[in-house]
Design a protein around this nucleic acid. Structure first.
Length: 734
DNA sequence: AGTCAGCGAGTTTTT
DNA sequence: CTCGCTGACT
């Protein structure tokens, strides 16, 4: 049931305006999600078939959040509403339709890493000097083109007589050819190909226009041109398009977000109804004043003033420390002090500009025995062992994926060297066939006579695994077979180093993730699993319930809120980033940084702590930084400046060093753990009954302390004896 | 084929 | 500081 009486007038107006174009300018914390979910609920109550409703969000986390809130409020029929990110929407469409564009429906999705590998090959094949043409630059250029819906041939035409751009055009073409022959799409292609599909096949477009008669787009200020095009295509027929956004929170310009999509929405869609949500329900008055004070310095924004009915609350606190080390130590100490005020760890977030800044905080948190989770950084799925194993899955699914084949053909070592792979790749290239096919015909390649036996071993392996898949084995079993038959685990176990141990743990976690997927998906399939892995970032799976301090970048924090926020590293050259000072359009980029600052400040509900360091180590050398300009933009009367008094504090009031027991004290960024989990809070022992998310109930038969974790052996009622690491298994005592 | 030392280069933010 | 590449050696 929708709750109209809990909404303010503006929110109500937004909920009730279901027909025609609607622009909702929703300030930070103005109850945006509530409006969207209630609007969906109202539409359904009003007789609109939920089947015709599509809500697009920016992140999977936001999508999941909206999904559950819609389910809660709507009741019957809510499952027919599509809630999706741009990228997963496109994947779902393309899986059905991409054969029209001459791709196979089992296409794989390449991440940044894969893109880089492909580009490396392209550069090599074209004999380009990679000093002049670094992969990064090329990929950036191509990505920018795709965001503008500029194809390789269009790019070539535009290049004119500019030699460099002509070269890039050739790279673009070759890169696309390579992806095509691997039956792969990169992130940008997902959008690009969908828009292309709709352009070439108006009848297909019309089907989707009929399907999605009511569209809603969240975080509209972050959409780029191709997303704009996609929305325009879909909305063209019925024009029931509701976009929600806040130009002050546009922080993805570097990724092609076009702020004019929202600023010019009214021109693009005549008769747009505009609704402003300016009452903030999240933060205290002082926090809002700080935010307004900062963002006020930006030009070219839709002027608005957030206000709150809440009291002023505490003042914002600012500290300048002597060093980055001290900043981290003091921040952790401040967090511990908050506990005395009844704040819990889960209420606290530490936000910084770059991922590299997380390290020192991790170290100090570990030493202080404060539980925390790190969001972002090196993606779990980007780690070597995880990528390797996923490549096995990908090759089973899509044999055209040359990149994956190359990655795993000699992992673990099978004695197939670079030279042999090169020969096979050449043969495949000349005969226009996927590398894997060439390998299957290895006896026809004379130059590979010597390596033939070894290669056959590999192809037989792939064949066996494919048979297993087609015989309908569950994915968990298939994955276990990969581990067993390739000897991947075995090799790591033999190594016995701490690194290898960490990798084994990661593999265990991957196994759990697969089990989780299989458990929760409606129709689990290998392609579904791979899709989820490709599109779901770590932040999306951030569980809400555990009581840990959160560490993340300001970008990752968008859309979230915390009672207490620490914004650290507020220094010129750090935030605003040193990069923007040297760019061509300094002013614009500073404004983007300022919006980022605004986003950070408005994450805080009750308490906001800002800090800077006089000196910090950056890439090996010491830097002296001035206090960020953003600090001085906050009105004096609401800020408490605490100077160096801190140092004395530390000496006299320093908390007793916590006892370290069962605590993982290894260097945090070692292997770039994204969550350092402790096994301290095991509440079960041998003989207890426990529940596992996948395996059900069972009895603990052994508990062995293995270094920094426990290895638990459980005899499950359904599936028998399993060994697992306590920190990953998340067993519940019953 | 595989390993390892040594050197040079690059580091914002991410679906 | 840390990655990634190169080239020499086992």
């Amino acid at each position: 049931m929708i709750q109209l009486d809990t909404l303010n007038d503006m929110q109500k107006e937004a909920v009730l305006s279901t027909e025609g174009p609607l622009l909702i300018l929703a300030g930070a914390g103005s109850g945006k999600t509530r409006v969207i979910t209630n609007r969906i609920a109202y539409m359904i109550e009003d007789g609109i078939n939920p089947y015709h409703i599509l809500a697009i969000t920016f992140t999977n986390k936001a999508a999941a959040e909206m999904r559950s809130r819609v389910d809660n409020i709507v009741g019957f029929g809510s499952e027919s509403v599509w809630v999706s990110t741009f990228h997963s929407l496109c994947v779902r469409i393309l899986r059905r339709e991409i054969e029209l564009l001459d791709y196979d429906t089992h296409f794989t999705i390449y991440d940044a890493d894969d893109q880089k590998s492909v580009m490396k090959q392209v550069v090599k094949r074209m004999n380009l000097d990679n000093k002049m043409y670094p992969e990064r630059t090329l990929l950036n250029e191509i990505s920018k083109a795709k965001e503008q819906f500029i194809s390789a041939s269009a790019y070539a035409k535009e290049a004119g007589t500019d030699f460099r751009r002509q070269q890039i055009a050739k790279v673009y073409e070759e890169y696309q050819r390579q992806l095509k022959s691997s039956n792969a799409l990169d992130f940008d292609d997902l959008l690009f190909k969908t828009v292309e599909l709709f352009q070439f096949y108006p009848d297909v477009l019309e089907r989707y226009q009929e399907r999605f008669q009511y569209l809603m787009v969240d975080e509209y200020q972050d959409t780029n041109h191709i997303q704009f095009l996609l929305i325009r295509q879909l909305a063209q027929k019925y024009k029931n398009l509701c976009v929600v956004g806040d130009d002050d929170q546009s922080i993805y310009r570097f990724r092609g977000a076009n702020i004019y999509n929202i600023l010019n929405f009214e021109e693009e869609y005549p008769d747009t109804k505009v609704i402003r949500l300016e009452q903030n329900y999240r933060s205290t008055g002082n926090i809002l004043k700080a935010a307004n004070g900062v963002i006020h310095n930006n030009k070219g924004r839709k002027d608005k003033a957030l206000w709150t009915g809440q009291g002023e609350g505490e003042k914002v606190v600012f500290h300048q420390y002597d060093s980055d080390y001290q900043e981290a130590e003091q921040t952790v100490w401040n967090i511990r002090k908050l506990l005395e005020d009844g704040i819990s760890y889960g209420d606290v977030a530490v936000l910084y500009r770059t991922n590299a800044q997380s390290r020192m905080f991790e170290e100090r948190l570990i030493l202080a025995n404060v539980p925390y989770k790190l969001v972002g950084g090196v993606n779990f799925y980007a780690r070597k062992e995880i990528k390797d194993l996923i490549c096995y899955l990908k090759v089973i699914e899509n044999g055209s994926d040359d990149l994956c084949v190359q990655r795993i053909i000699n992992v673990p070592k099978r004695g197939i060297g670079a030279a042999s792979i090169e020969k096979a790749a050449l043969f495949a290239y000349q005969n226009q066939m996927p590398l894997l096919d060439a390998l299957f015909h290895v006896e026809e390649i004379p130059s590979l006579a010597r390596a033939a036996t070894k290669i056959k071993g590999f192809t037989r392996l792939v064949e066996e695994l494919r048979e297993e898949l087609s015989s309908g084995e569950p994915l968990t079993i298939l994955f276990q077979s990969i581990l067993d038959t390739t000897g991947y685990l075995e090799e790591l176990e033999l190594e016995g180093t701490p690194e290898a141990e960490a990798r084994i743990e990661n593999i265990e976690e991957l196994k759990n993730k697969i089990a989780q997927y299989e458990d929760s998906a409606e129709e689990p399939s290998l392609s579904g699993l791979l899709e989820e892995i490709a599109l779901v970032a770590d932040i999306d799976s951030m569980s809400e319930d555990d009581d840990k301090v959160v560490l993340m970048t300001l970008h990752s924090a968008k859309g979230l809120e915390f009672p207490c926020v620490f914004m650290v590293g507020l220094e010129e050259g750090v935030f605003p980033s040193g990069m923007v000072m040297y760019s061509e359009n300094v002013e614009e980029e500073i404004e983007e940084e300022r919006r980022l600052c605004y986003v950070g400040i408005t994450r805080a509900k009750k308490r906001l702590f800002l800090s800077a360091a006089r000196q910090r180590m950056t890439r090996g050398n010491l830097q002296m930084n001035a206090i960020s300009r953003f600090v001085s933009e906050i009105p004096d009367e609401i800020i408490t400046v605490a100077g160096n008094a801190v140092k004395r504090d530390m000496e006299t009031k320093r908390p007793v060093k916590p006892q370290i027991s069962n605590v993982y004290t290894a260097k945090p960024s070692y292997g770039k753990e994204f969550v350092v989990t402790r096994a301290t809070d095991i509440d079960y022992g041998v003989g207890d009954r426990v529940r596992h998310i996948k395996f059900g109930e069972g009895e603990v038969t052994a508990l062995v302390s293995g270094g920094r974790d426990y290895e638990v052996t459980v005899n499950f009622d359904r599936v028998g004896i399993k060994k697992m690491f306590a920190s990953f298994a998340k067993l519940q005592k019953i």
